[in-house]
Amino acid sequence: MYKTWRLCRTHTVGGLCHDGSHRFVSTGGAKIGKKFENMNQIRDYLSRPVWSVHEYLGINTKEEKLEPPSAEAVKKLLRLSGLPLEGADIKEIQMRLAKQLSFINKLHNIPVEGEKHTKEYDARLVQRNTKQLNYTKLLEGISHQKQDAELGEVSGSWKATGLAAESKNAYFVVKEGLLKNRK
């Protein structure tokens, strides 16, 4: 079956982006094979396991092989996360992080297809080449901007401290002076 696959034509996207950036369609490794003629072919195709997710991602790596981050590193992470040190099982977090990292660190060994041309900025699900803002559109855009009461944008239209568990004279409150206790 596989040896009769027809490689699909490498398809280049017409017209490079105006700023001359990277793109061809990199079909990279993606390939469409020959059409199935009958159910037997399909059955056959489906019966061959291709990869094991457990194996590929090393999910059951023995604990001894893992490299946990240091206790200091974990404390720093708790601090950055705004989570308490007290009551935190540092060892447990170290081990868990180690497992998670061994899972995602698989990416280190995977080469990026077309590395030079591949921009991480393109990873978002928005237009890669956004429409340019020109002068007219800029001024028009500014003139059309207005306050939306449905977004609370009209001054004094809603009580901003109304949802807070604590407030004082229309101020929000943070207890224990910010500078004093911050290390």
Binding site: T27, L107, V112, E113, T118, K119, E120, D122, A123
Partner: peptide, 21 residues
């Protein structure tokens, strides 16, 4: 750099592969 940006670039590869098929 090693994890986050790498993952983003591989995401671009994935999107491109889908585009190709």
């Amino acid at each position: 750099k090693n994890n986050f940006i790498k993952a983003e670039k591989l995401r671009v590869n994935l999107i491109d592969e889908f585009d190709g098929i």
